[in-house]
Write a protein that binds this DNA or RNA. Structure first.
Lengths: 143, 143
DNA sequence: CAGCATCCCCCACGATACTG
DNA sequence: CAGTATCGTGGGGGATGCTG
């Protein structure tokens, strides 16, 4: 297994620093697959959508909304579009009146659910410790 | 980084008072330990720092910088502070001239590395499929 | 060397309104 | 019902300069 796969990116160098005047279509990409993935699942609702779909199998837009408290329809829509574009979620439309749209995980999405579930388990198991550590630091900083 | 200090504890004279703007009804989902975690590791450099520290054991600030292409001093500093505050990274200072500061994973941080590595493996294995799906969608949208 | 302080840009996200 | 279009904002994050 290869580790440290990321190449240099050459952030410093001749061609960087165009940032200030405004640049078009740049690619700042370090080709780090993990970071790209984390950028995706790190967006606020993505992991939750995946989780809910993994648990429920197939859901309609509104059902999804109902199971994800606090999400706006815009963000749910955007999140789903991204997931569909990424090939993680399949979208099925029934052209009735009113229309019904179903979402479910693709096999790829299902395979992502595995490491994601592991992360969830870690979170539920260890986040209390993290919070305790934070509280600790806060107290130390105040005195 | 996300917030986390919703408890006021305004030490009169301190700098609490996050109340500006007044957010109502936050704290929705009970299952969002995961989301909090993803907010953390979803920040641009966190997972990379954890990875590098997991591989190297203990590193100084500059060494860390050298192994994470593209990171700015400010963001590395911020990231490390958060990781230390979260109890995932330990900070050790040698009060010499010039000073030397070492960072290494705590046992807690090490335990996080496990699911994180699983996620990395998924990414390296399946991100090509994700990218292919994206390209596919693009082509479909163009015609 | 390690790291704050400052400025500023960009974009994820929320609220609201409208459509097929 | 299942979205799109538009506007506004907070804060993540890059660049640069200064300090102990």
């Amino acid at each position: 297994m290869s580790e440290l796969a990321e190449d240099g990116t050459s952030t410093s160098g001749g061609e960087a620093g165009v940032t200030r005047g405004g640049r078009r279509g740049d690619l700042f990409d370090p080709t780090c697959a993990t970071r790209k993935l984390l950028d995706r699942i790190g967006t606020k609702w993505t992991s939750m959508v995946v989780k809910v779909l993994a648990a429920a199998g197939e859901l309609r837009f509104t059902e999804l909304r109902g199971r994800i408290p606090g999400v706006s329809q815009k963000m749910l829509s955007t999140t789903l579009q991204n997931l569909v574009a990424d090939g993680l979620v399949a979208r099925r439309v029934e052209h009735t009146v009113p229309p019904r749209v179903f979402y479910r995980l693709t096999p790829l999405g299902d395979s992502l659910e595995v490491p994601l579930a592991a992360l969830r388990e870690w979170a539920e198991r260890h986040m209390p410790e993290v919070d305790a550590a934070r509280a600790d630091v806060r107290r130390a900083a105040e005195s």
